[in-house]
Structure formats: C-alpha cells, structure tokens
Design a protein around this nucleic acid. Structure first.
Lengths: 223, 223
DNA sequence: ACCTGAACACCGTTCAAGT
DNA sequence: ACCTGAACACCGTTCAAGT
C-alpha cells in the first residue's frame, strides 16, 4: 500500500527497485540471464525501458543487485566438520553446489572473486581452515584463490558445454577432432577415445577439490 | 591474381574464407572479441554483412575458424622434462602461458575442453604424464579435466577482473565489501584486508598448479 | 520526482532480388 | 555462384519533454 509521505514531494513512484529486482529474478530463473534485457524487463513490469534507469544506474548495477538478492536467499551455512582440511572441502563444496545451479552468477561475479557481504563468511572459513592446516595467512589467501579458480572454472566450463549440447545438432567439435586421431602420434587419447565422453560427463568436482586441498596443505610443510 | 578456372562456373568469388578469417583476426588482436561483429567485419573487408554468410555458416562458425587459426600459429611444443610430474606441470604451464594473452579463446573453447587438433598433443602429454605418475588412464583423464578447470578458471577470472578495472571508476565491489567487515565475525579477512589487493594481483598460477598435481599424484596411491 | 516517446547507434540473420 | 539492399527483430542508453 503506497503511503504518500508528507515529507517527500513530487510524483509518487510507480515502480520500485524491489519490484525491478524481483521481476528480473523471475525472468532469470525461468529463462536464464541471456534473456534478461532492459526492454523485456520493462514490458514484464508494465513500464518502459527508461523508467528502469530511474531506479538503477545501468544493466550492470541491476546484475549486482540481482547477485545480492540471490546471495541473501541462497546462502546456507553448512555444518563445519572439526578437521580443518575437511572444513575447507565442506565449505568449497557448498559454494560449488550452490553455484552449480545458477552458473550465470559465476559469470557476473568472477570479476571480484567473492559474492557479496553474505558470502564473506565462506571465504573466511576457507582462509581460516587453510591457516589451521599450517599455511601462512598469505598462502592461505593464495590457496583460497586457487580453490576459487578451480571452482569457477568447473562451473563455467560445464555450463558452457551444457549450453552447446542443448542448442547444437551438428557433431561437436570434440567428436570431429577425436575422429581424426592418429594412434601412433597420440596413443593415450586414441586408446581413451571411447571413454572420453562418459568420463567428461562425470561430476568429479569433489575429487579434484580434495586433491587440490591435499596438495596445498602438503606444500605448506615444504616452504 | 584471380584465375578463373575452366571448371568452375558462375560469378568468381570476391572474398574468401581466408580473407574473412584474416581480417577477423586483425580486429580481434587490435580490439578484442567484443568488437568483432559481422557488420564491422564486412565493412573492414569492403563488403556487406550478407556476403560473409556465403562463406561461413554463422558467427559461431567464424569463431571456431578463428580458433583453429590461432592454434595453428600459436602452439609451440615445449621441451619436455624427463620427470613425468614435471612434464605435466610444464605442459599445463605452457597452455596457460599461451592462453593468458588471449583470454577470449578460453571463452570460445571452454565448451569442448580442447582447442583443436593441433592442441591434442598437449592433452596427450598431460594424460600420459599422469599415467606415468601412477594414475589409471581413467583417473588421468579426470585429472586432466581438473587441471583444465583450474587453468580455464584462472584465465577467465583474471580476464574478467582486468576488464572491470579498465572501464570502471566507481570503487570495486570488493573495496565496498571489505570496508564493512566486522573483525569479530570475520577475523581472518579483517586482518588480511590490506593484503588482499596485492595478493590478488600476484600470479600464482604455477604454485596452484604444482599443488594440484601433487595432490592428484598423491591420491593415486590411496585409491 | 518520476515517467514517457522518440531517437541514436548498434546487433545477428533472413529473404528476395540482381548479375 | 556470388553478392546486394532492404528488412526483421532485436539490443543498451540518451535526450527532451510531459505530468
């Protein structure tokens, strides 16, 4: 119920930032970020593109708002195991599980390697866990970044290949390339040609993560 | 010198696939993939957008052609150290060094986790190196994928943050977020707030890669 | 203060026609 | 066979005007 304040003067707003973000979220959930356009959003909201620019600076700002909105309603802090190494794995695994369903978020937030204020807790846990495993604070930050690269890469690469598979009927680049392999020159790949597709379909994120964390911790003693 | 063949009939072509790819490469090298549009390419070539569609199916196909072109002129096989673990590190490091300068390639090729025929040699070396370290062939493929996720993630995240830094003058998301940290709740991050920017600027790809490979090899004995 | 319409400067791609 | 012009169905954003 819009309640015209005695203080504020001028025309009462017909649309709000909240309504914009909410509608944007609905579009993105239903059809992906690719379908979110200022024009589409405006019609959906029953307004004009330009009205939006009165509430958000530009599309980029809208995406950041959307990000915060997702973070606020998506982030659930996992139970933390006592062992610090397992804690790092659990936290990174949770981040991965949360983001895998909404890969567009990774694209928006890659630039800054952390999600939003609500997500800093996750970063804190990983850095703290790595320190508890014996890394210096500086190395723990480096380790956190390494884990993030791996996590973001996994999500983006998988999202991209799913996207391709969905819309493309021509044989994939991969199939074309694997077809022409010379076993003399590339013996391993030629022996593995049949296994490649099923192996690629596997979800090996956690295995890779464990290997990475093991390696980071093992190197702490070395340096 | 166009030499009208006696066999081929009809209007002689005025533009060729080669010329299209070559011009596209010039644009991308000079201004980035973001600036490569069919219209722009057509004017650059002195033709119309539609003439291009006679030589390439669509923009996606053009990007793949461009990819092959880059692969052919960029790939240099590194010297391989005898130790298999070092071999994996050397090959992945070479891939990373080659791609870091042209991050758009990663975006195009993420979908298929290998570049082109010319790049299969690199995949072969990594898989073979991991097998020589004691991994089963299947695990070596999984390990290769893990390395690729990490490598692609590193390049894409770094590219995205560079992009932001270039065009944005408002304080970054990160700065805003770090400003409001509560030391009681996030002690590590608050202690590291000043170190975050310089640590993030560091190139730690190789350190992370070594940790990852160590971890992959160490787990081979476990399973 | 808030919203609108028209316009600018773009996209990728299709279609029908020209040589 | 190859190329062109005009058009379709879009983009994000700015500007000047309206209420």
């Amino acid at each position: 119920m819009p309640q015209p304040s005695a203080q504020r003067r001028g025309r009462p707003p017909r649309i709000s930032r909240e309504e914009i973000v909410e509608t944007a979220r609905r579009i993105v959930d239903a059809e992906g970020v690719g379908r979110l356009t200022m024009r589409r959003l405006a019609t959906e909201i029953g307004s004009t593109p330009m009205a939006l620019y009165h509430h958000v600076r530009d599309k980029d700002e809208l995406l950041v708002l959307l990000l915060d909105d997702y973070a606020a309603r998506m982030l659930r802090r996992p139970d933390l195991p006592p062992d610090p190494r397992e804690r790092v794995v659990a936290v990174a695994g949770t981040i991965h599980a949360m983001l895998a369903g909404v890969p567009w978020i990774v694209e928006v937030l890659t630039a800054d390697d952390l999600l939003s204020e609500a997500a800093l807790w996750f970063t804190e846990q990983i850095v703290d866990g790595l320190v508890a495993c014996g890394l210096t604070p500086d190395d723990a930050v480096r380790g956190y970044r390494t884990i993030w690269y791996y996590t973001a890469g996994e999500i983006m690469v998988r999202a991209a290949s799913t996207r391709r598979r969905e819309r493309d009927d021509r044989p994939t680049y991969r199939e074309r390339v694997f077809g022409g392999i010379d076993p003399a020159e590339l013996p391993r790949l030629s022996a593995l040609a049949d296994r490649w597709a099923p192996l690629t379909a596997e979800d090996t994120y956690l295995d890779g993560l464990r290997a990475l964390v093991d390696g980071l911790v093992a190197r702490a003693g070395t340096a």
